[in-house]
C-alpha cells in the first residue's frame, strides 16, 4: 500500500534520512521504532509532504506522491496524527472534528463519521462543545486521532501517540489503535518511542538509527531479538 524507496531528507546541511526504504501492506500495523532523533518523525513528515524529499520515492497506491502538496495527500486517504497532537486548541472539539472532515462534502456522511469517532472515543462526545485547549493530554490525543479519522483515511500514520499521556490512557489509546485497524480496516504506520507497546500491537517493525533502517522483521521476532531488547526494550 505504501512503499518508501531510498528516501533521503536533509534539514539544511544536516542529513536526517539516508536512503530509508520500507513498505506497509494493506490492513497491517507497521511500526517504526528508534531513539530520539533517529528520523522517525522526519519519515512521516516526508510522506505527508511537510518536509522536502531530497531523493527517493514514496509510492502510495501505485503512484509516486513526492512533490504533491500536503492537502492533496490527505485527499488520497493518507492521514497523519502528528507528533504533539496539534489539535486546534482555539476551536471546540466539534469544530476540530469538522476540520478533520474538511475535504468531505456530504454532510450526512460527515455526521456518520462523527458518530463513528464518538463510538470509538465516547469521551469526545461528552466534551463536544468544549474548547480543545482545555482538554487533558489524553483527550487531546483522542481528538487528534478522531480528527484524522474524519478525513476517511485508508492509511493512517501516527507519530508518538503515547507521548506525554498518563500511563492508564496510553493503554486505552493503543487498544483503540488496534480497534481502528482490525475492525475498520485502516492500515497504520505507527512511530513510537515506547517500543514495547508498539511491537506488541504491530505486525511488522522497522528499527531506525541515525537516519538508516538497521533492522526489520516481524514484530514478534524483533521483540525476541537480543539487540533490540538491549537497545530499545530495556534489557
Amino acid at each position: 500500500m505504501l512503499e518508501i524507496k531510498n528516501l533521503s531528507v536533509s534539514y539544511g546541511a544536516i542529513k536526517a534520512l539516508h536512503g530509508v526504504s520500507l513498505s506497509v501492506k494493506p490492513g497491517s500495523i507497521v511500526t517504526l521504532i528508534g531513539s530520539n532523533g533517529a528520523g522517525k518523525s522526519t519519515t512521516l513528515r516526508a510522506v505527508s509532504s511537510l518536509v522536502k524529499v531530497q531523493t527517493g520515492e514514496i509510492v502510495y497506491d501505485g503512484k509516486n506522491i513526492v512533490g504533491l502538496p500536503p492537502h492533496k495527500i490527505v485527499a488520497r486517504g493518507l492521514a497523519q496524527v502528528p507528533e504533539g497532537r496539534m489539535v486546534f486548541a482555539n476551536l471546540t472539539v466539534q469544530e476540530n472534528l469538522m476540520m478533520g472532515a474538511y475535504l468531505q462534502r456530504d454532510t450526512q456522511a460527515i455526521r456518520r463519521d462523527r458518530d463513528f469517532v464518538f463510538g470509538i472515543f465516547p469521551r469526545l462526545q461528552e466534551r463536544e462543545k468544549q474548547i480543545a485547549g482545555t482538554l487533558s493530554g489524553g483527550e487531546q490525543q483522542m481528538l487528534a486521532i478522531g480528527r484524522a479519522l474524519m478525513s476517511k483515511p485508508k492509511f493512517l500514520m501516527m507519530d508518538e501517540p503515547s507521548l506525554g499521556i498518563a500511563p492508564l490512557l496510553v493503554k486505552t489509546i493503543f487498544e483503540k489503535i488496534v480497534e481502528i485497524n482490525r475492525q475498520h480496516g485502516i492500515t497504520i504506520l505507527l512511530v513510537e518511542q515506547n517500543a514495547n507497546l508498539a511491537l506488541e500491537i504491530s505486525h511488522f517493525g522497522y528499527v531506525l538509527e541515525t537516519g538508516r533502517i538497521i533492522l526489520q522483521n516481524e514484530s514478534a521476532a524483533l521483540r525476541a531479538d537480543p539487540k533490540v531488547r538491549s537497545a530499545y526494550l530495556g534489557g
Binding site: H71, A79, P82, M86, F88, M98, Y102
Partner: peptide, 21 residues
C-alpha cells in the same frame, strides 16, 4: 472561516487535515 481560525492556530496541522493553506 473555521479553516482560517485553524490555520492561524497551526498551519501544519491545518495542511494535515486537507486544508489548502
Amino acid at each position: 472561516g473555521t479553516a482560517m481560525r485553524a490555520l492561524s492556530f497551526n498551519p501544519t496541522a491545518a495542511s494535515l487535515v486537507g486544508i489548502n493553506n
